[in-house]
Write a protein that binds this DNA or RNA. Structure first.
Lengths: 341, 341
DNA sequence: CTGAAAGCGCTTACAG
DNA sequence: CTGAAAGCGCTTACAG
């Protein structure tokens, strides 16, 4: 084994001619210990570069100071911004973070959850994988460990949830289109209403309703596995309609970019003939031409907030579990695809 | 504390009327134990859903089965593909992964390294933060722990390194431009020669040399903190030259995209007047118009390979440290920015 | 084939 | 103010 041993409490105690208990307490600033002793101990510890074996203390105290995070896909830009927030805030509060990818596989998700529990994490942060049918495994884990969910959540799990104001964000996006004079606004959403898709659709409906614009089912399009390619397909469908829409709201940036690519191909003028709005403010939204109007989701803040709530639950355990939803505000970023100055 | 206790060896031993030692050995398939006993033990363990407390065994055996990963920036797409590979292969081999971001801050990087050691990870995987001046801290860690570096490496650290064939990749990219008839090929690289930038520049030089094209310093541009904005600036400079280049090789995709944006703005025909090649095959390379010819870096493979070597070093420790460089092959992806079919 | 016992490095109730 | 001792859950050399 290559691992060189760190200096231990025992060794310190020996050279100081004190008991291990006293050294331990001195290092932990226990009030019982005299100022003098503390000084002596700390000086020697510093000199020898003493670092406590977190493993031993964790084992002893049943606390590992590790948080587990489970996300469907680590390479989504939005996910990485959340993870950044989690890492930063976690570190600030003295926790390390273990990350797992569920790859939108429900079985894998359950497995990971179990491994994390077995591993001894102090709490779990998770975004549900798409199409999670059964939440039994998750509920089981909740009996043992604090759990906070973010982004992709489920009403069936009574825990703290940190999400963005999906409905309002969509409402704002559609309202913006209405304010620029658009009246025939199409939406591209997911077939199997995920939490996010459903909320955004509701925001769309509310905006239309409040501005007394009738809903036309012909321009409400749904697709599975929403993507750039699907966005392009949907745009083709919309272009083939007798009465084309004058705006398209896609509930993801990638679909919106697919839409723009299709419109560009057919030389449809954006935004004059058809305006486009996406959702996420992904990196690509400023690469595409025209640049994409989209909803900025503050991932960092979501991550930080989720961690804060989780650590609070870890450090101040409460007996009863109950749902609590924290909504993080988003911001519509207006670019050329919907408005030309 | 909310944590419900898992069933322990002790409890199992009691109900089976066996010693703890025997139960432990039975579960670990120790050859000494009779087949019958093993069966009895395993059956009961399954029934009670026994999971070993990894923390206790880790503490005992000085092995945590955690790997630490330190990367400069978790939201670079290329980095996430590497991390994916690390997570996948790590999981396969029974390791969990702790991820940290150094944010290209040398001090932070050292801190993280120390925390990881203290924490008890079994090995560390890292990509150096930009402009790392001193490797002392890293060398110190190497005395205690296996270390494997990837992507951003340093010749000063005698450890296994997993990198892509930077020089060859750049050579191939430039050769491709030459093959399409280009002769006046500009390069946009980094000022302070990072490992990657330097290697790519060497590949550029070798290609020119082998095809007997003289190097013209006027079209060898360097910039700090290479980025989209910088790419755009460099393109403007190149456009203002008396004799414009007929191709631009940017050593990152973002710079290449900045170049394309600038060329588009001035209605320069791509690739007829000026061809553009980038490096990374980032998501944006197919969003930009024209789509970007670029070098695909197999991040997943890099991650998997790095983990394999690391775990091998953990499980089969050798006394002497020595450098070993594993090169992963890249692939040039030809798109519209350099060649129109 | 099985068991008793030591020990990993630390914390903490108990005693003085 | 300080110390002796138990114990967290497991593994493993030693003994039989």
């Amino acid at each position: 084994m290559k691992k060189k041993q760190n200096i231990t409490l025992k060794a310190l105690a020996k050279t100081l001619d004190l008991s291990i208990s006293t050294v331990s307490r001195a290092l932990n600033d226990h009030p019982d210990i005299s100022w003098e002793t503390k000084e002596r101990v700390k000086t020697l510890a510093d000199k020898h570069n003493y670092v406590p074996n977190l493993f031993a203390s964790g084992f002893r105290s049943h606390r590992t100071h590790i948080l587990g995070v489970i996300v469907p896909n680590i390479s989504h830009y939005f996910t990485t911004t959340i993870l950044k927030g989690v890492l930063e805030e976690g570190e600030n509060l003295g926790y390390r973070v273990i990350i797992s990818e569920s790859k939108n596989d429900e079985k894998k998700q359950s497995e990971m959850l179990r491994t994390m529990v077995q591993f001894g994490v102090d709490g779990v942060l998770m975004a549900l994988s798409r199409k999670t049918k059964s939440v039994d495994e998750i509920l089981k884990v909740m009996n043992r460990l604090p759990l906070v969910m973010f982004d992709k959540v489920s009403g069936k799990i009574p825990c703290t949830e940190v999400v963005i104001n999906e409905e309002e964000a969509a409402y704002n996006a559609v309202e913006h289109l209405i304010n620029t004079g658009k009246r025939r606004i199409a939406i591209i959403k997911e077939t199997e209403g995920s939490y996010n898709s459903e909320k955004r659709y509701q925001g769309y409906l509310r905006a239309l309703k409040e501005y007394h614009i009738p809903v036309d089912e012909k321009i409400v399009l749904s697709t599975e596995d929403i993507s750039l390619a699907k966005g392009r397909m949907m745009a083709n469908i919309l272009l083939s309609l007798k009465t084309r829409p004058d705006a398209i709201f896609a509930i993801t940036d990638s679909a919106a970019i697919g839409v723009i690519k299709a419109l560009n191909k057919f030389k449809v003028k954006i935004p004059e003939e058809i305006a486009v709005v996406g959702f996420s403010n992904s990196a690509s939204s400023t690469i595409i031409n025209p640049s994409l109007t989209t909803v900025d989701q503050p991932g960092n803040k979501i991550g930080r907030t989720a961690v804060k709530y989780l650590i609070d639950e870890i450090e101040n355990p409460k007996e009863d579990m109950f749902s609590k939803t924290i909504e993080i505000k988003t911001n519509l970023i207006v670019r050329d695809s919907s408005f030309k100055a």
